[in-house]
Design a protein around this nucleic acid. Sequence first.
DNA 1: TTCACGATTAGCT
DNA 2: GCTAATCGTGAAG
Length: 217
Amino acid sequence: MSLTSAELFATTQQLSRSFFARGTEEVARDLLGTVLVHDSPDGVLAGRIVEVEAYLGQGDAAAHSTAGRTERTKVIFGPPGHAYVYRIYGIHHCLNVVAEPDGTPGCVLVRAVQPLCGVSTMRRNRDSEQRTKLTNGPGKLTLAMGIGMDLYGADLTASRLTVRLPEVPSRLEIGTSPRIGIRKATQLPLRYTIAGNRYLSRSQRAPATRRGRVSPP
DNA sequence: TTCACGATTAGCT
DNA sequence: GCTAATCGTGAAG
C-alpha cells in the first residue's frame, strides 16, 4: 500500500528524544513498525521499518563504537535520536539510529523498510522495479531513499530525516535472530524483524556460514 | 605515507 | 555457493 505524504503525516506522529534515550535493544525492537521519513529534494520518501539490528556500546565486538570514539563514530557517543551514516565497502551507505543517553554508545542499524511513500522515486533511485526488493537491505534502502553522508548526525526528531510513530498501533510478532554479515560476535541474537514480512532482507538465516577455521575434533 | 579491511550487493556457477 | 566492485577509515610506520 502507498500513501500520499499528507496521509502519512496525518496518521503518524513524530517520535520524541526520550524514545531514543533508552537501552539499545529496547529501542531496536520498538523501532519495528515505525516509519522512516526523508523529506528529500525529490519529494517525501518513507518506509515502515521492518528489520533492524542492535549494536551495543559494551560487550559487543561487532559494534563500530567498540574501538572507541573516532571521527567516524563520534555521533554514536553523542545524544540519542541522531543518524549515524557510514559508507561500507566503498560503495554503499548504511543508516543507524543512535540510542542510549548522551555519552553512552549504542546504535540500531536499519536493515529493511517497507516502501510507503515516493515509491516511483525509489524505483528510479534503485533502477529496479520489484517493490519487495527496493529497500530490503541496508545498502538498498539508503540508495532508494536518497540517504547519504550529508545526513550524518541528522536529528531524527527534527530534520529532513525523521522517524514517526503510527497513531494506530499494530500488533507485531517480532522475530529474533543473529546479525547478518558480521565477522565478530556472530552469535548474539540482536537482529529483530517483523516476522513474516515480505520486505525483509532475508526471511531466515542458518547459523553463521562464514568461512574460517573449524576447530579440529 | 602506507595498508588492510569491511554491519553489502549483484551477478554469476 | 562464490566473488568482484570500490574507497574511507584508522592504526601503524
